[in-house]
Design a protein around this nucleic acid. Structure first.
Lengths: 106, 106
DNA sequence: ATGGAATACATCGTATCACGAAGTATATAC
DNA sequence: GTATATACTTCGTGATACGATGTATTCCAT
C-alpha cells in the first residue's frame, strides 16, 4: 500500500490495537500486520509520540523473567479514536470526489 | 482535518481535479477547497511531482493576455485513480479495525 | 489614474515523520 | 551451542506539506 496513505492511519491504528487490552510492541506489530505492516523502528517512534501526546501510558512489567513495556490507552487516546470516526466523513467525501465518474458519458 | 490523513489523498485528489477537463493551479485549489484545503506552495510542489511521475502533462496557454499552465492527465494518471479504488478496500479494512467495538460488551 | 484585490506561478527553508540499518539482550527450540 | 524468535533502542535519511516571501498581471472601485 501507498506509504502516504498509511500515514494518517498509523497513529489511530496503534491506539486501536491497545484499545481493548494493554499490549506491548511486538504484539502490536503482529496484531496490526493483517491491516498495516510496520517496522519496529516505526512503531516505537509512534508509541513514543503517542505517549508524549498523552494518548497512552507506559508501564514496565516482568514477563518470563524479562521486562516488557505495556501500553495502556488513556481517555485522550479513546477520544482520538472517536474523533477519527468524525474525520472519516470528510475522508469519504474526498473518496467520492476522487472516484466519481464523469457525469456526462453514456 | 488531520494533516497526516490528507497526505495520501492529496496526489490522487489533484489528479481527480483535472480528470474531466484540463485545469490550472488556481482553479484546482478552488475546486478542491470543499474537500481539502491546500496552499499554493503545496499544490505546485505536487503538480511538479506528478509531472515527473508522468501522471500529467503541462502546456502553457494564453488566457486574457497572460500565460496559464494547463495540466492534462495522462493514462498513467488515470491508472493511478483506478489503483486508488483498489487500495481503498485495504483502507476500509483498516477503518473497520480501528472503529470496531469491543465484541464482549453489552 | 490610482490603489487594492484577485489571479497566477515560483522558490526557499523548516518541521514532521516513516523507515532501514544496526545494535543489545534474553528465551526457546533444535 | 547455535540459530531463531522475542523485545526494545538509537541514528541517519529521504520524502513531503506548508508558511513565508516574491514577482507580475488584470480587474474593479473610487
Amino acid at each position: 500500500m501507498d506509504i502516504q496513505l498509511k500515514r494518517g492511519l498509523l497513529d489511530v491504528c496503534v491506539l486501536a490495537a491497545i484499545k481493548n487490552e494493554d499490549s506491548y510492541g511486538y504484539k502490536i506489530i503482529k496484531d496490526m500486520k493483517p491491516y498495516i505492516e510496520l517496522s519496529e523502528s516505526t512503531l516505537y517512534t509512534i508509541l513514543k509520540r503517542l505517549e508524549q501526546q498523552e494518548m497512552l501510558t507506559v508501564k514496565s512489567a516482568e514477563h518470563d523473567g524479562r521486562l516488557r513495556k505495556y501500553y495502556h490507552i488513556t481517555g485522550t487516546g479513546l477520544k482520538r479514536i472517536r474523533d477519527f470516526r468524525e474525520e472519516w466523513k470528510e475522508i469519504m467525501a474526498i473518496y467520492q470526489f476522487v472516484t466519481k465518474e464523469d457525469e456526462h458519458h453514456e
